[in-house]
Computed example of a mutant assay.
Amino acid sequence: MIHTYTVTGMTCNGCKTSVEDQLNMLPEVIKASINLEASEVAVEMTKHISIETLQSALSDKYSISIKNERNIFEPSLVIIEAEKSELKQLFPLFLIFGYITISSVLLNRTPWDINGFMLDFMGLFYIVFSFFKLLDLKGFPKSFRMYDPVAKVVPVYGWVYPFIEVVLGLMFLMRFEITIALIITLGILGITTIGVTKTLLNKKTIQCACLGTALKLPMTKATFIENSIMMIMAIIMLIITYN
């Protein structure tokens, strides 16, 4: 069952994450998801939890109350609506992936060159994604360090990361020092994927910084798949290079 409550006292993404973490610690809670703009939390639970129990799980800064008397006892309908909403939010990401794929295919269609396709795909991927990150260079590092392990410890890494992507993109497109570019790709995306995986396993709902802050995308399995595709391509290219 999923119940929706009103939560007051939240002012930023940090508050949002804090409330979600505190509620998710309750054994009866499957997942708590905050809508910061509406000051609401949707709590999926295995059995009914009293409002007093929910309030006791939160710090004194936050107050939780029943949004309305009618709770939702049809989780299948809620899940369908949530999936539709998530797909709608991720549409820009799928659209960009489609454009990158089509462009890479057209660049290598006659004659067909699978190696060239993967190099162009990775190059265009980095260039396009770095563009969106650079649109808000001040806001990107804040979002990025919420899940990237290195950015959490070394904040300057978040500022440098978009430029690393630009350089890697140019290296792939210009076929310059490809081996080095592939190794760096495995390194930086591997680290980020660890952070993404931890975020998903901890049931945290945060904004994904893959397209910067210009497009507000939720952290989902799509982010994990996106990084995995790039890493798999990098591994394949390294195997081909050394065989």
Results as ranks from 00 to 15, higher is better:
Phe224Cys: 03
Lys67Glu: 13
Phe163Cys: 06
Pro218Ser: 04
Leu186His: 07
Thr220Arg: 09
Leu106Asp: 06
Ala57Leu: 03
Arg70Pro: 00
Glu44Ala: 13
Tyr161Val: 07
Asp136Val: 09
Pro141Asp: 00
Ala222Val: 12
Leu36Tyr: 13
Leu182Ile: 10
Ala42Ile: 11
Met45Gly: 01
Val166Ser: 05
Ile236Gly: 03
Val150Ala: 06
Tyr157Asn: 05
Ser59Phe: 02
Val167Asn: 02
Met237Cys: 12
Thr11Ser: 13
Met25Glu: 13
Thr192Glu: 15
Ala32Arg: 06
Ser76Lys: 14
Phe129His: 11
Glu28Val: 07
Leu182Ala: 11
Pro155Ser: 01
Pro111Ile: 10
Thr110Tyr: 14
Ile64Cys: 06
Gln207Asp: 00
Pro155Ile: 03
Glu226His: 12
Ile183Met: 14
Ile34Cys: 00
Leu211Val: 00
Gly14Phe: 11
Ser33Lys: 15
Val29Ile: 14
Ile51Arg: 10
Ala214Gly: 00
Met25Lys: 15
Leu124Met: 13
Phe132Gly: 03
Ile180Arg: 08
Phe97Arg: 00
Glu28Pro: 01
Thr101Val: 12
Val154Pro: 00
Pro111Gln: 09
Ile188Asp: 08
Ile240Asn: 15
Ser143Cys: 09
Asn227Gly: 07
Ala234Leu: 08
Cys210Gly: 08
Thr17Trp: 00
Val41Cys: 07
Gly14Lys: 10
Lys221Val: 14
Ser85Met: 05
Thr199Asp: 06
Phe129Ser: 01
Lys84Thr: 02
Phe144Thr: 04
Tyr161Trp: 05
Gly169Lys: 05
Val7Met: 09
Leu217Arg: 03
Val150His: 03
Ser104Ala: 14
Met118Gln: 11
Thr110Leu: 08
Tyr62Leu: 09
Val7Cys: 09
Val128Ala: 11
Leu106Val: 04
Ser63Gln: 15
Lys216Val: 11
Ile64Thr: 05
Ser130His: 01
Ser85Gln: 12
Val19Gly: 02
Phe131Tyr: 13
Gly14Met: 14
Pro75Ala: 07
Ile30Cys: 01
Met171Ile: 06
Phe163Glu: 04
Ile64His: 03
Ala214Met: 10
Ser39Ile: 01
Ile194Met: 08
Lys216Asp: 12
Val105Asp: 04
Thr197Trp: 15
Cys12Val: 08
Thr110Asn: 14
Tyr157Gly: 05
Ile229Leu: 14
Met122Trp: 08
Leu182Pro: 10
Phe144Gly: 01
Gly9Met: 11
Ile96Arg: 02
Leu23Gly: 04
Ile34Pro: 02
Leu134Arg: 01
Glu86Leu: 12
Phe224Asn: 02
Ser228Leu: 15
Leu173Gly: 11
Pro149Glu: 00
Ile114Glu: 13
Leu189Trp: 10
Ile232Val: 15
Ile127Tyr: 04
Val156Cys: 02
Val19Glu: 05
Phe144Gln: 04
Ser56Phe: 03
Lys204His: 12
Glu177Met: 13
Ser50Leu: 07
Ala42Glu: 15
Ser39Cys: 02
Ser76Leu: 12
Thr11Trp: 01
Lys221Phe: 14
Thr4Ile: 14
Ile72Tyr: 12
Leu135Asp: 05
Leu170Cys: 05
Thr193Val: 02
